[in-house]
């Protein structure tokens, strides 16, 4: 049984201009201990999916269709009370370090013990403290910094603390939303490598959200490419990266420079993504697509099977 199944998920935000369809008909599936990278440019709906998996959509956002099933439990049907039991203990989220996921006026040790205490009334204070120290060792934070305030940490240390918090209750699924975007290259590289080791060691499922396909390709087993609220290509990382089918995926792969090989011209993607308020009849990418045909504008594209595990949402691939 898959650890996570997202079936035909649609999410809307009520806005002054009307309903904004942030996520539209997304299907995902994740086995225990596997990692799935969600990539796409900002505004394509990645964080919205992550928040829905945590049951943390903002008040103006709601699931308008489909369902989320985590380890056999339909979490999209749970009420807030039931969600609180699942959140952090079954599914945890790592936010961008820059997003101040840590409370600046509470010592890191207190924030971590508190998180464990709320969910584990069975554990005594000594056991909780031992757990926190274990987590510090796990993510490579020095124990003597345990009682610091978050602002005394560097960006990389903050991110390690956030990872430790996510691991605190042994969740089966971790959603990492741009976990290293605000970090320097060397620290980013260290944290990505360590996260990968932890994931394998504890058999955690990871959804890794990033706008950078080169990072996702390096850390994830599978990749899902999103565009304007839809999944447009999905498959094993190798396949999606080296045998990209969707014109958007190809453009993404071709849009960042590399360290070696010929300095081939990058492929900028002209134009801007569509407005997500209101109906979009045809393919969402057609305005920016080199393959754009008359039918693309009118008919929504259908999923094509490239092979058993590699799929693309395009009628002309």
């Amino acid at each position: 049984m898959a650890l996570l199944k997202v079936e035909n998920l649609s999410i809307g935000y009520r806005t002054a201009g009307g309903m904004l369809k942030a996520v539209d008909g997304v299907n995902l599936s994740l086995e225990e201990g596997r990692s799935l990278g969600l990539v796409g440019e900002s505004g394509c709906g990645k964080t919205t999916i992550g928040m829905a998996l945590m049951g943390l959509l903002p008040p103006n956002g709601s699931i308008t269709g489909g369902r989320i099933v985590l380890d056999g439990v339909e979490i999209s049907a749970l009420d807030e009370e039931e969600l609180r039991k699942v959140r952090w203990s079954q599914v945890a989220m790592i936010f961008q370090a820059a997003m101040n996921a840590l409370n600046p006026v509470i010592r890191v040790s207190a924030q971590m013990t508190e998180a464990i205490r709320t969910h584990r009334p069975d554990m005594d204070e000594q056991a909780i403290m031992q757990r926190v120290e274990g987590l510090f060792n796990l993510v490579g934070l020095p124990l003597e910094r345990l009682h610091d305030f978050p602002h005394q940490y560097s960006g990389g240390m903050k991110q390690r603390a956030i990872i430790a918090m996510a691991l605190a209750l042994n969740p089966k699924l971790i959603i990492a939303d741009e976990p290293t975007t605000a970090l320097d290259v060397i620290v980013q590289d260290q944290i990505l490598k360590e996260t990968k080791v932890l994931q394998e060691q504890f058999d955690i499922g990871i959804i890794f959200i990033s706008h950078d396909i080169s990072i996702v390709a390096e850390v994830c087993h599978d990749i899902g490419v999103m565009y304007a609220g839809q999944l447009v290509e999905a498959g094993p990382a190798q396949e999606v990266f080296f045998n990209s089918k969707h014109p958007y995926t190809r453009a993404l792969v071709g849009s960042f420079p590399t360290l070696a090989g010929p300095k081939s011209k990058l492929t900028p993607i002209p134009g801007e993504p569509p407005n997500l308020i209101g109906a979009i009849p045809g393919c969402r990418f057609c305005d920016r697509c080199p393959k754009d045909t008359a039918s693309c504008k009118l008919e929504p594209p259908k999923w094509q099977e490239i092979n058993e595990r590699h799929w693309v949402l395009c009628d002309h691939c």
Partner: peptide
Amino acid sequence: DATPKFGRCE
């Protein structure tokens, strides 16, 4: 060393 290289930098 720290630059992502996925497959592109043999």
